[in-house]
Simulated assay, not measured.
Amino acid sequence: MNGHKTLPPPPSTPPRQLTAEEGVELGLDLGFKPAGGGRGSMTRGDVVVLTIRLLCMATSVTAMSFMVTARQASAASFYGFQFQLHSKWSFSYSFEYLVGVTATATAYSLVQLLIAASRLLLRKPPVIPSRNQAWLAFAGDQILAYGMMSAGSAASGVTNLNRTGIRHTALPNFCKSLDSFCDHVAVSIAFTFLGCVMYGAAAVQNVIWLSKSNH
């Protein structure tokens, strides 16, 4: 118009979006949330892993504690004769085996909990950081699950013998005179089998984590 050429308007430049760091410098909370809940956040899977690990630790410590405190001195009557009885967990190889397995399980669970706690303190979830560690934990959990089952079964046989005596042999029920000892052993065996279930659950949880990590 009027001999002047109209120039097209310059292309509009889209406004640059502020980063989270720039927003903090300006005193603004931009509400940015990193994918996956953000650094330092725990998922439901992490909570499940920690819960199972705590239960594994608790059952192992309880089983070991009740067994190593199983001891009692008493007297029993056999065919009219009084006999002094002294019972202790270390007198039986099966009970010593149970203590060894539960002590190993306690140490293993403590290491796993320390690894998980260190990652949470450093704000580096998940508590299972890599596939290699998941495979190692899976193998360890399976070994301890079978070990706990084996130890509980061996100790159960000796305890049943104390309660029923030997077949075709007139042995008394020693647990009538050694009730405290037998009660400690029974509780230890019960928590040993419960620990077997917990370590089995931990192995299953590792399998779930490995299956999800493939996707």
Rank of each mutant, 00 (worst) to 15 (best):
R119W: 02
L114Y: 10
S213T: 09
L26N: 08
T106V: 05
I208T: 11
W135R: 14
A154W: 04
F95W: 02
Y146P: 00
L178Q: 06
Y146I: 04
V111Q: 13
G147L: 00
V127Y: 01
P125D: 06
F91Q: 15
I166C: 04
F95H: 04
G37H: 03
S177N: 08
W209Q: 09
S211D: 10
G37S: 06
P129D: 03
V185S: 06
A134R: 07
T43H: 07
Q84M: 15
L50H: 08
L144W: 01
F78L: 11
I166S: 06
V101T: 10
F66Y: 12
S213N: 12
V101E: 08
L18D: 13
Q112M: 09
L178C: 06
P129T: 03
Y146G: 06
A190V: 10
W89C: 03
S60Q: 07
L120D: 05
D141Y: 09
G23E: 07
Q112A: 11
E96V: 08
I166G: 02
F181H: 11
S130M: 02
C175N: 02
S87C: 14
Q205L: 05
Q112D: 10
S109E: 07
C56L: 08
A151W: 02
A202I: 01
L120I: 12
A58I: 14
L98R: 01
V24N: 12
A190G: 11
C196H: 13
S180V: 15
M42H: 06
L28W: 07
G147K: 00
I143H: 07
L144K: 01
W89K: 04
L136Y: 15
L50E: 13
T69V: 02
V99N: 01
D29P: 01
G152L: 03
N162M: 13
T62L: 13
S74E: 12
L18R: 14
P14D: 03
T13E: 11
C56M: 10
V207T: 14
I189D: 01
I166A: 07
A155I: 02
A20D: 13
S60E: 10
G37A: 07
S60P: 10
N160L: 10
S130R: 03
N162F: 15
R39V: 07
Y199I: 05
R119N: 05
V49P: 00
A170M: 11
L26E: 08
F181C: 09
G37R: 05
A75K: 14
T164G: 04
L178T: 04
G140T: 08
